[in-house]
Design a protein around this nucleic acid. Structure first.
Length: 636
RNA sequence: GCCACCUUAGCUCAGAUGGUAGAGCAAUUGAUUCGUAAUCAAUAGGUCGCCGGUUCGAUUCCGGCAGGUGGCUCCA
């Protein structure tokens, strides 16, 4: 018998008989490894345990503990689900079923949509099939054979997929009487699916195209073992507790009203205070960095929107109002007034860069189905700025914005993800402009030292952009900061500056937001802190509590002194037991409860209790003010 | 906009196979003056999202609309 040798991850070599598989290798290394093995990596490519090895291969065994195992487990579980669906609903046509970040899904074309009861039936069937321990086998067919096979099965979506594939052969996985087109790899048998749960049903367009048929998508999740699944479910429950819509109501921050309109936020006193704190913070930070604060009107003449191209490209999302036979567009963006400010006088290269900052409230008619709490609304305020600069200043300006983003996110304790979107097929502007702008964005990203992704062809038609995304409690990504280069508007509005040589030149425009929309940012902020805002952001920093009615006169004095010192305090002098008042303050997540009983009256002090339950020593009001001011300065 | 589901008191939720509804918390009133997560009692509170249809009768069945939830699509 011939022997082959393979290399393991630790660079050791192992000799095997010719024809040995990944599983044979695992066995040769150890029985325990063979038991835990679920797949392998050969020369950098993931393969099944049953894949044969060749002389010189570099091989690694994937076990349940390997980071890459989750995707394989989920992918196989999605096949298991498809098998269950086919067995319960033989008329269902299968389409695609990948693993995703939080689990997996599979799309089916069925006559009648699935009901929640169906979900339970399908899950039960999956358990039955898993228990049956059906081996999962791989075979390779020619494209023609595969098309014929799926045609015979009546799986027209699969036929379409295979026809579009750019390959001579395709691989097919079988388990029991179920077969699916798939690249793999997969678990060796259905019994390896040990911990899964179907989570929801949704509609989804075939191939993501809203003009094509809507399929039924079933979402589920799967893990290596029950413990990990339970942890995931616990995380979901925690996310529900942190939901900004729930906390927003409980802390009385904001509301929506169908009498007012969908997607229009009503800020209550505490929410409006939180907003104001953020806005003040923003104004200070922008002034520090050389921005000028500007302010434009809410409505601008329709003709101006026609000139900018918004009327042509964005009209569907705009609100209009007509007065005295003149149509006005309610602004969906803030750029136009900023352009008008630039144009209000002749600009010299010595004036540039100009950075106009506006906390600009905009209205966009987002489609009804997309609204989501504070995270997707129809009226919102952006921390918007437009930088007008010479092309050669672009690099420095973009770096400046990125470091601004980094500073601000650091203060809030947010981690974020960055994406660079490049020139789409439909776009305007010269190759040279695009290249310069894209390079500037990329250089700034590289300079930041953080990882980033590139979305080829995903830029705006008027220029490339950097998107910065934060995650909500459910790990959904929301775009907050964005930096976009724009070649159109300076052109359309004929913006110029006088260069050193006396020539008129065209400035470059950068649109950018740091927090994005204040509404969305607050939504993410609420979930991030679960409503426990740090002292500098807390709309109510302290609550003065009396033990009995006897302390009210002194407590009143303390309360006014704190107010005068600029501390955001409220009081609770109700005739309730202290325990009850503490409980309420705790539920309101007030950082400091300032307890006043006979002791404090006598010594002219207050005893602060932090919301984590710890007590500070009794202190004078002036000491408390100093303490709070210090904490606020540390953004704590 | 599309698919599915949901809408009952301020909030969280029960409920009747069609005969106009209940709990807890909150609110109000009274008693209690009690030092670190719920004092006790009483009272009040709902055209059962809105508009149509079927029916002797609709909160319940059907249709439309509005709002919401989870997705899809979109996101200049």
């Amino acid at each position: 018998m011939k022997e082959i040798a393979v290399t393991l991850p630790d660079n050791s070599r192992k000799s095997l008989e010719e024809g040995a598989t990944v599983l044979d290798l695992a066995r040769a290394i150890g029985a325990g490894l063979a038991r835990n093995a679920i797949a392998g990596t050969v020369n950098g490519e993931q393969v099944d345990l049953s894949a044969p090895l060749h002389d010189g291969d570099v091989v690694a065994i994937i076990t349940e503990k390997s980071p890459e195992s989750l995707e394989i487990i989920r992918h196989t579980t999605s096949h298991l689900m498809a098998q269950a669906v086919k067995s319960l609903f033989p008329d269902a046509k299968v389409t695609i079923g990948p693993a995703i970040e939080s689990g997996f899904y599979y799309d089916f074309d069925v006559e009648n949509p699935f009901s929640p009861d169906d979900l339970e039936k399908i899950e039960a069937k999956m358990r039955e099939l898993a228990k049956a321990a059906l081996p999962i086998t791989r075979e390779v067919l020619t494209k023609q054979e595969a098309i014929q096979l799926f045609k015979d099965m009546g799986e027209s979506y699969k036929v379409e997929l295979i026809e579009d594939l750019d390959a001579d052969t395709v691989s097919l996985y079988r388990q029991g009487d179920f077969a699916d087109l798939c690249r793999g790899p997969h678990l060796p048998a259905t019994s390896f699916c040990k911990a899964f749960k179907l989570t929801s049903i949704a509609g989804a367009y075939w191939r993501g195209d809203e003009k094509r048929k809507m399929l039924q998508r079933i979402y589920g999740t799967a893990f290596a073992d029950k413990k990990a699944l339970d942890e995931y479910i616990a995380r979901l429950e925690e996310a529900k507790r942190r939901d900004h819509r729930k906390i927003g109501r409980e802390l009385d921050l904001f509301s929506f009203s169908d009498e007012v309109g969908a997607g229009l936020v009503i800020w209550h006193p505490k929410g409006a205070m939180l907003r104001t704190i953020l806005e003040d913070f923003e104004r200070r930070e922008h002034l520090k960095r050389g921005y000028d604060i500007v302010l434009g009107p809410q409505i601008l003449k329709k003709e101006l929107w026609q000139r900018s191209g918004h009327y042509e490209n964005y009209r569907e999302n705009m609100y209009f109002t007509e007065v005295d036979e003149q149509s006005y567009g309610i602004k969906p963006m803030n750029c136009l007034s900023h352009m008008m400010i630039y144009k209000s006088q002749l600009r010299s290269y010595r004036d540039l860069p100009l950075r106009y900052f506006e906390l600009g409230t905009v209205h966009r008619h987002e489609r009804a189905g997309v609204l989501h709490g504070l995270l997707r609304v129809r009226g919102f305020t952006q921390d918007d700025a437009h930088i007008l600069c010479m092309p050669e200043q672009l690099d420095a300006e973009i770096k400046g914005v990125l470091s601004f983003v980094s500073d601000v996110m650091g203060i809030f304790g947010f981690d974020y993800e960055m994406e660079l979107s490049t020139r789409p097929e439909k776009s305007i502007g010269s190759d040279e402009d695009w290249e310069r702008a894209t390079k500037a964005l990329q250089a700034a990203l590289e300079d930041s030292g953080r990882p980033f992704e590139i979305n080829e062809g995903d830029g705006a038609f008027y220029g490339p952009k950097i998107d910065i995304k934060l995650r909500d409690a459910l790990d959904r990504k929301w775009q907050c900061a964005t930096i976009q280069c724009d070649f159109t508007l300076p052109e359309r509005f004929d913006l110029t500056y006088v260069a050193a040589d006396g020539e008129r030149k065209r400035p470059v425009m950068v649109h950018r937001v740091i927090l994005g929309a204040i509404e969305r940012f607050i939504g993410v902020l609420i979930e991030h802190f679960a409503g426990n805002f740090p002292l500098w952001l807390a709309p109510v920093q302290g609550l003065v509590l009396t033990v009995t009615d006897n302390q009210i006169p002194y407590a009143q004095k303390v309360f006014s002194e704190l107010r005068q010192a600029g501390i955001r305090v409220q009081h609770d002098f109700r005739n309730e037991k202290l325990g009850f008042k503490i409980r309420e303050a705790q539920l309101q997540k007030v950082p400091y409860m300032l307890v006043i009983g006979d002791k404090e009256v006598e010594t002219e002090t207050v005893t602060p209790r932090y919301r984590d339950g710890s007590n500070l020593p009794a202190m004078k009001v002036t000491e408390l003010v100093d303490f709070i001011e210090k904490e606020v300065k540390r953004f704590k």
